[in-house]
Simulated assay, not measured.
Amino acid sequence: MVVRMFVRAYLRASTKEQDASRAKDDLFQFASDKGLKIAATYIENESGASLNRPELFRLLSDCQAGDILLIEQVDRLSRLNAKDWERLKSEIRDRQVKVVALDLPTSWGMAVSSTDEFTARMSEAINNMMLDMIAAIARKDYEDRRRRQKQGIAKAKEQGLYKGRPENKSRNQAILKMLESGQSWNSIIQATGCSRSTLSRLKNNTQVLL
């Protein structure tokens, strides 16, 4: 009996300035080397430390039992804290999706169907353990970088050198025009990628000037 299995590639970058599709060729090459074909690709620019990832959950909702979630690195899937990682794992487990990562050789066996139930279960158990370990390392790396960033900002402030991020004047001007035209906050956020706090600040600054 031939088991029908779809491979779904997931590519993520943290910011809109980063190229989320950078590893696409590597994922397609890996699938080709394993005799597999990628059925769909899901790309988004969202933080790996957050569960607010529409494309990832769209991928999971599209999956059938036995489908493969293919990623370049485990940290593309998770830089989550322990609680959120467990929630994501539960979603993956409940849908019976196999996670295969290019940087996790223990997962590569999940890319092929095994007629040996014992081998398949052992492979899954080992892979799940490795996923947990690498996800924990990815989270620690994320927290360490955030801590160093805060320390650097604090030191720069003490020395009077910190100026913050440069203002995106062209984007802010466009946002102000959208506000003046009466567009909703949700539509502006969707169109520009700005935060609600930025919208609030710009609106308040405009009122002060008036």
Results as ranks from 00 to 15, higher is better:
1 M>W: 00
2 V>E: 07
4 R>W: 07
6 F>Q: 04
10 Y>A: 03
11 L>M: 05
13 A>Q: 06
25 D>E: 13
26 D>W: 02
34 K>R: 12
34 K>M: 14
35 G>V: 12
35 G>A: 13
37 K>A: 14
38 I>S: 07
44 E>A: 03
45 N>K: 04
46 E>R: 15
48 G>A: 11
49 A>H: 00
50 S>H: 09
51 L>E: 08
54 P>L: 14
60 L>P: 08
64 Q>I: 11
65 A>K: 12
65 A>H: 12
66 G>W: 08
68 I>K: 10
68 I>R: 08
68 I>E: 11
69 L>P: 11
69 L>M: 14
71 I>N: 05
72 E>G: 09
75 D>A: 07
78 S>A: 13
78 S>C: 12
80 L>A: 06
82 A>L: 09
83 K>H: 08
83 K>F: 05
85 W>R: 03
89 K>A: 11
90 S>D: 00
91 E>G: 03
97 V>T: 15
97 V>L: 15
99 V>C: 13
103 D>N: 13
104 L>T: 10
104 L>S: 10
107 S>M: 15
112 V>K: 13
117 E>A: 06
118 F>V: 08
119 T>H: 07
124 E>Q: 15
127 N>V: 12
129 M>D: 02
131 L>P: 03
138 A>F: 01
139 R>F: 11
143 E>N: 13
144 D>M: 15
145 R>V: 07
146 R>W: 03
146 R>H: 06
153 I>Y: 06
156 A>V: 05
157 K>H: 06
161 L>W: 09
165 R>N: 14
166 P>S: 09
167 E>Y: 08
168 N>P: 10
173 Q>K: 13
181 S>Q: 13
182 G>K: 01
189 I>G: 02
190 Q>H: 07
191 A>V: 07
193 G>H: 04
196 R>H: 00
196 R>C: 03
198 T>L: 04
199 L>S: 01
201 R>N: 04
202 L>C: 06
205 N>S: 14
210 L>H: 12
